[in-house]
């Protein structure tokens, strides 16, 4: 099914509401659009472009991380209302999971979680997990894509262990990494053997979308 084109008017309205953390206005925009869009179409034509704009704006120092986080949380709640967890129209491919590797600071993975859910995806969340257990879970759950978030350099370096463990076991799940160490050292993701890196939550979304469209990373 072709994707609906971005709705520039609603995008601007929702962007303003999200950047000022105005949940009521965001909710009103959604309810006013119910006759115009089916749930998933609203997600594709309005929510995804807005979250992408805000995520890129953070990467360009235009917006703050708190705005990215609050935007994701508000949209997550909106989308949960129109696409419940068990909804059949949630996107179940690629089969994927999100994990916080070894660290205790979950903001990055929480933002990615919110953006992917707000974009209509269904996925597993492993929460905070160590490398060995992550490898076991990926193999057992037969995942196609794993999004790994870290905050600290030692945790980023552990991605190497995850990749080695998977490849040794013949598992070709794509590993997508993100987090501060990868933003500050732009070559680190290749050093640890990841398949892709996301510098923002919307990057993570684009990477996942590239899988579903059959494009290479």
């Amino acid at each position: 099914m072709p994707q609906p084109p971005p709705d520039t008017v609603l995008i601007e309205e929702l962007k303003d509401a999200l950047l000022s953390s105005d949940e009521k206005k965001a909710s009103r925009i959604l309810s006013d659009s119910e006759n115009q869009y089916k749930p998933l179409a609203f997600v594709e034509a309005v929510i995804v472009p807005v979250l992408d704009h805000i995520g890129q704006g953070w990467a360009n120092d235009q917006y703050a991380l708190s705005q990215v986080y609050m935007s994701g949380r508000i949209c997550e709640d909106l989308v949960d209302g129109i696409l419940p967890e068990k909804s059949e129209i949630r996107k179940i491919r690629p089969k994927m999971a999100i994990a916080l590797l070894s660290d205790y600071h979950s903001l990055g993975s929480r933002i990615v979680w919110a953006v992917l859910r707000a974009s209509g995806y269904h996925f597993i969340s492993y929460g905070r997990i160590e490398a060995d257990e992550l490898v076991e879970n990926i193999i057992e759950d037969r995942l196609e894509v794993v999004l790994i978030s870290v905050l600290m350099l030692p945790s980023a370096l552990q991605v190497k262990d995850v990749v080695h463990g998977l490849r040794r076991a013949g598992c070709n799940a794509k590993i997508v990494v993100g987090g501060a160490p990868f933003r500050l050292d732009k070559n680190l993701w290749t050093e640890v053997g990841a398949d892709a890196v996301g510098f923002t939550a919307s990057d993570a979304l684009s990477i996942v979308q590239s899988f579903t469209r059959g494009k290479p990373i």
């Binding site: 708190s66 986080y69 979950s106 903001l107 929480r110």
Partner: peptide
């Protein structure tokens, strides 16, 4: 209290 809950509290 964690980054996410703290940001939500600020707002």
């Amino acid at each position: 209290m964690g980054f996410g809950p703290y940001i939500e509290m600020i707002y």
